[in-house]
Design a protein around this nucleic acid. Sequence first.
DNA 1: GGAACTCGCCAC
DNA 2: AAACGTGGCGAGTTCC
Length: 469
Amino acid sequence: MDIKSTQADAYKLLHQGTLALARAERQGLRIDRKYCTQEQNKITELISNLEGELKQSSFYKEWTRSRGRKKLNIDSNAQLGEYLYEVCGHTPPKLTPSGLGSTDKESLKQLDIPEIQTILRIRKLKKIRDTYLKGFMKEQINGFIHPHFKLHTATTYRSSSSSPNFQNIPKRDKEAQKICRSALYPRRGHQLLEVDYSGMEVRASIFYHNDPTMKKYINDPDSDMHGDMAQQIFKIDDFDRSRPEHDTLRSAAKNGFVFPQFYGDYYGNNAPTLACSWGEMPENKRWESGQGISIGDEKNLGEHLVSHGFRSLKSFTNHVQDIEEDFWERRFEVYNQWKKDWWRKYQNQGYIEMLTGFRCHGPMSKNDATNYPVQGTAFHCLLWSFITVDKILTKKNMKTRIIGQVHDSIVLDVYPKELDKVCRLLEYVMTKKIRKHWPWVNVPLDIDADLGGVDESWNELEEYKFDEK
DNA sequence: GGAACTCGCCAC
DNA sequence: AAACGTGGCGAGTTCC
């Protein structure tokens, strides 16, 4: 048990991984060229209308005037920042790493200028058109794109992808998702299947720290880590995940506290994010009753929290600070101790070594030293599964092929008659066989799947339960 | 005219 | 005392 892999094992994974990824790359993904062109034209038309509208505004006219003889470029954030922060004298809500006033979406929204909405809309449309649709067309050969996957560039020994990047195609934003993913198809007569490891990074962290509380959260299907945190953060006594308003708070806790904390963030950043769950709240102001989402019983979250004594961001921040302390000093005490031990070990030996045998050298911050092994190892589980599934598909001469990978998921181009067989294979390799190969996998691994119909695009996937078949 | 940089934004 | 991890890429910009 608990036998770590050697550096030779790591090399083997890298080598076989590169070969398997190259096969996926060669396979590629069909794109609808006609759709891409039409959609690009539609967006161009939209943008030109929006730009025309913007140019009518006094905001734009003043901006132009302020530049004198210099040409104005709507796409230049340097010019926008100069106008907003130097000419108009707005205080930048945030600075960039180099110390200039930021013009990102977050900052611009806070300035509360109506024309800004148009600028943000244009930005978003250009991103979709130029990075994705144009990018697909640039890289396509005979109607197929062949995203490239590398294993030697990321410092964590994760993978990277390029030409085009397969790993950052819009998903969260539904409008962008639809436009971009509707361009991507399986081979004719085939269907797309995406299988992902659920909570892989959290589980990979357990391989290292073996924290009993976190293990219980993973092993006990009735427990709910994010729900518990939502309950604690927002002081909800009768928390019920099946209630939509409570599930919203659960997501807020998950994305605004739990995950950032795991990456090394702190309450000072978490509190303002969490505070947005019940409405925008400018610094130094106080909450009023009547603000925020409804939480049932004819109450809303604003009132609820005010009644618990949180009238200002400051008092809420203190509350989140207490929760952070409880989180690391009590709830996940063992995890916390591992972080300390691991950091000490890095300081002593000058490198860290993953369970998979990979070594990270070089200067690292505290957060780096504890994040790298988790992130790398989580990906290596996916990579091992990728290699193993690919080998079997090839060996058995199946028509199904793997076409890509997104850190904790595998994307396949499935021959419909092989669907059941492929699903059984994935289930077996990803949740069972891997535990025989790597005995330090000390918690069950779990997968979810999404399936598209025959000849349907990547936009059409729907949740697919293996065991109900 | 290309390399290298910043910034913003997409994914996990 | 300090304070969010990993990537790729387009556009603008600056430098050589």
